[in-house]
Simulated scan of single mutants.
Amino acid sequence: MEALIRHSAASFLRTESRIGFAFPTRLDLSETDKSVVAKLDVPGMDEKDIDVTIRSGALVVTGQREQSSEEKAGNYHRMERPFGSFRRVVPLPCDVAEERIEARLNKGVLTIDLPKAVQPHARAQKIAVTPSLF
Rank of each mutant, 00 (worst) to 15 (best):
L27N: 08
L27T: 14
D28V: 08
D28Q: 12
L29M: 04
L29Q: 06
S30H: 07
S30Y: 07
S30T: 09
S30G: 04
S30K: 13
E31R: 14
E31W: 04
T32P: 05
T32I: 05
D33Q: 14
D33W: 11
K34E: 11
K34V: 03
K34D: 09
K34I: 04
S35R: 05
S35E: 08
V36P: 01
V37D: 14
V37Q: 15
V37T: 13
V37H: 08
V37K: 12
V37M: 06
A38Q: 01
K39M: 03
K39C: 06
L40Q: 00
D41H: 02
D41Q: 03
D41K: 00
D41N: 07
V42I: 11
V42Q: 02
V42L: 12
G44K: 05
M45S: 02
D46E: 15
D49Q: 12
D49C: 07
I50P: 00
V52Q: 02
V52Y: 04
V52L: 06
T53S: 11
T53Y: 02
I54A: 07
I54M: 07
I54H: 07
S56Y: 10
S56G: 03
S56K: 11
S56E: 11
S56M: 11
S56T: 07
G57F: 02
G57A: 14
G57I: 02
A58F: 01
A58M: 08
A58C: 08
L59K: 11
V60P: 00
V60W: 01
V60Y: 04
V61K: 06
V61A: 09
T62V: 12
T62M: 05
G63N: 05
G63T: 05
Q64N: 12
Q64E: 11
Q64V: 06
R65K: 15
R65N: 07
E66H: 15
Q67P: 06
Q67G: 06
S68W: 08
S68K: 14
S69T: 10
S69M: 14
S69I: 14
E70V: 14
E70T: 13
E71D: 15
E71Y: 10
K72M: 14
K72G: 09
K72T: 15
A73H: 13
A73K: 09
A73F: 05
A73R: 10
A73Q: 10
A73D: 10
G74V: 02
G74N: 09
N75L: 01
N75A: 09
Y76T: 08
Y76Q: 12
Y76C: 03
H77R: 15
H77A: 13
R78H: 07
R78K: 08
R78D: 06
M79N: 15
M79S: 15
M79Y: 12
E80K: 13
E80C: 13
R81P: 05
P82K: 15
P82L: 10
P82N: 15
